[in-house]
Each structure stands twice: as C-alpha cells, then as structure tokens.
Design a protein around this nucleic acid. Sequence first.
DNA 1: AAATAATACATAAGAGTTTGATGTATTGAA
DNA 2: TTCAATACATCAAACTCTTATGTATTATTT
Lengths: 113, 113
Amino acid sequence: MIFSSELIKGTLKTIVLKLLADNKKMYGYEITQTVKELTKDRIQLTEGALYPTLHALEADGLLTTEVEYIGKRVRKYYSLSPKGKSKAKERVNEFTEFVEAMQSLLDIKPRLA
Amino acid sequence: MIFSSELIKGTLKTIVLKLLADNKKMYGYEITQTVKELTKDRIQLTEGALYPTLHALEADGLLTTEVEYIGKRVRKYYSLSPKGKSKAKERVNEFTEFVEAMQSLLDIKPRLA
DNA sequence: AAATAATACATAAGAGTTTGATGTATTGAA
DNA sequence: TTCAATACATCAAACTCTTATGTATTATTT
C-alpha cells in the first residue's frame, strides 16, 4: 500500500525535521531515499513537494545549508539550526498526541441515539 | 494543545467517513461538535473546511443526504452509501498503517554514518 | 424587551501547497 | 553507447483550506 498524498502532506515537515534531528545533515535526494527505505516503499516523497518544503524550512530559520562537491556533482546538505532542533521535538510530540486524538475518533463505538 | 490544521487536512475525510460509519446519519454542525467533544477540543473542524468536504464526498457518491425540519430550521443529514461504507473501512485501515509507517520514521535512532 | 450566544446551513476570495511535468547534468551499469 | 540512477531545481495548473461573510432561527442572559 502506498499512502495517499493527503496523509503525507500534513506530516512532511515533521518527517524532514525528525530525520535531520537524527542524522545531523542530509541532502534532498537522500531524504527521499531514506524515507522510502524506512517505510518499506509506503511513503514516497516527490521532489516537487520536498524541495519547496526544504526551502520553506530554511526561510523560517529552521535549517542551515552547506554545499559539497562530489566529483563535479553538487550536493546541498541541510542541517537543523538550534531553532530547528526544538521545532523538531515539538512536531514529533504534536504528531504523537494527534494520533492519540485520532484514536478517540477511530476506535469509538456507535453512540447511543 | 490544538493541532495544526496541516495535520487535520490529511485526515478530514477519514474522520467524517468513520463518524458516519458509527452513527448512521449526522448533520454538519453535529460533526464539528462531536469531533470537538471526542477529542477534548483538540481537533476543531471549521465549517469552511467541512462543508466543501461533505459536498465533495457526496459528489463522489460516498454520501447520501436527506433534509429535515426542526421547527423552521433546516437540517441536512448525511449518511454513507454502500460505496461510502467500504471507503470508510479502507480509510481507517490506511490511517492505521500510516501511523505504523510513521513510527518507523519517528522512533528511529541515528543511523550509522 | 433587547441583546447576545448558540445552532445550522453555506459560499467565496485569497492564500497556501502539491501534482506532474519538465529541465540540466553527472556517474555507473549493461 | 545507451539507459538507469543520482541530484539539484522550477513552474503552471490543480486543489484545498482559511478567514470572512451571509442568512436565519432559537435559547439564554441582562
């Protein structure tokens, strides 16, 4: 099962921030591949969605970048700023609580009329 | 904590379908209040988001409607069509699996470099 | 009695985001 | 040498939500 993009939308930033919190620095393509791997192909980030998101996080001061050359190919690494680190924790907590709230909704039995 | 609308976006249809699967028929305002109640105010659906969604689900043939008068006030009830019933199950399953996939991402320890 | 809050529907402009396509270029494998 | 994979990125069109607005009835408060 590949998840509908609707679900991914709401969690894309959370995913990116958490991966960077765990891995110090990553580049865009690496993020797509890591997510694919860790979720056994069920979450596939498209580049059209990822790059604008990375740029938005950078504009918000949550990410810093550094460019590296691998042979002649350029590679842009993203890292969390201090602000980004606390945001990452915040987002992961929020998602955890959100799942709890969703369980209240999805596990309920029919209410009495 | 009130959840960022980003998170809710991806699950709005799932929430609506599941509530209707449990409650036979509900009207828009009732849905907003039930969600608010069941999640202890943490998920608050706005009408501007809910009504277009209900109309979209109806247009997809997942919901049927019937109008009732409570005094002079009109009330529009939504129910699941057969197609809507199977879609509801599908969506709830998808969300459950999505949460599992997200746990693979959010619980991971730093990977070895 | 009057004002306010709650109930209940709904739309619409503007804002924001994603999809899907496209583009460039290097490196490795067949 | 050709194709697939790596690696960046943008853009128009499509989609969806936010915020505000609108209408109207009923219940509650002052």
